[in-house]
Structure formats: C-alpha cells, structure tokens
Amino acid sequence: MNIFRLAGDMTHLLSIIVLLLKIQATKSCAGVSLKTQELYAVVFVTRYLDLFYSFISLYNTVMKIIFLLTAFTIIWYMRKHKVVCQTYDKEQDTFRVLFLIVPCFVLALLVNHEMSVTEVLWTFSIYLEAVAILPQLVLLQRTKNVDNLTGNYIFMLGSYRALYLVNWVYRYFTELGYRQWIVWVSGTVQTCVYLDFFYYYVQAWRNNERMKLPG
C-alpha cells in the first residue's frame, strides 16, 4: 500500500468521524442528507459482501467493518435518536434516489467484468459511490448556509477521492499490469462532482468567512 492510498483511506475515515462527532456533540444533523448517508450504506453493503468469502488483509477487513458500522450508526442517529432526528431537514432532503440507484444498477448489468451476482453488485457499488454525494450537495445548495462541520465533512470526502486518483497514477507506474478501468472512470467522475464545491470552499477559506453557495 502506498502513502496516497493510506492518506486517502485516513481522510475518508476522518470525514466520517467528523460527521459523527458533529452529530453527537451538537445533537443536530441539520444540513446533513439522510439520502446520501443511506446511499453510502447501500454502497458499503454491496461492495463489502466479499468480507464473507475473501480475505485481503487485516487492515482491509477492519476498515470495511468500520465503514459499515459507522454508516449504520449515522443513519440510526438521523432516524431514531430522539433529539437528533428532530433536527433532520426532511422537507429539504427530497432528492429522488431511485434516479441514481436504477441507472447505476442498469449500467452495472451492462458494463462489468463478470456476470455474477457479487461482481455486478460490486460494480453497482462503484457506480453508485460516484454519485452518492449528490443529494447532500443539493441539500447544501437549498439551505445555502453551510455550517463549518458539514463543509469540512464534504471537503474531506472530496479530498479522499482526489488522493485515490493520485494512488491510481502511482500504482499504474509502479505495478506491472495494474489497471482497473471501471474504478478509474467512476472515480474520476466522482472527483469531478466535488469540483464546484471545492471552489466555494477554498474561496470561503481564503476570505476567512463562512461558506455560502450561490443561488
């Protein structure tokens, strides 16, 4: 494992910890999209089915379990916690997730490495992860004012993807025969989804002010 991959994973982990801490400390999930969190849960469940039949490393197994558990913990807080669930912007978080799930599934059926249940679900998880942040970005656009923690959460998620891109370039030049087109193309799309957000995040940071999105 190279440094870019490790930094990417750690940034991903940190983004989830930031979100959980925000929810726990402020007892509020205002500005957080439940739809995006549920999509991530679907992504992790469909991708990490291999926990049952393949072992890569202790690091891999532990990280997969952490991602699964934290995804469901966040959803539990937003749906079931008696204080936190009241702060959820249900009326604003109206993105139609089937518009993401169905096309991703159809694409996974059409473009995959192998026509098997686990392989199609794995491919589906790759496609779905690329667009899973969209409900969150739409919610952000609607509520306009972005609180610091939500902003940092999304910034770290975007950074994790950017670090994975660097990791792929590094692996391409250091590992003979290493290529994975499905992952590369979806990962590039996924990183591009964050570009607009990055622009406003950096601009707010440079001007030392709260982040605001244009209408």
């Binding site: 890569i56 490495h113 192998e114 990791n167 290529r179 994975q180 992952v183």
Partner: peptide, 10 residues
C-alpha cells in the same frame, strides 16, 4: 476469474 481485478482497495 480472468479480467476481474483484485479488490484490494476500499
């Protein structure tokens, strides 16, 4: 199977 990449990334 051939063509299926090693899934060592998260």
């Amino acid at each position: 199977a051939a063509g299926v990449c090693a899934k060592d990334e998260l």
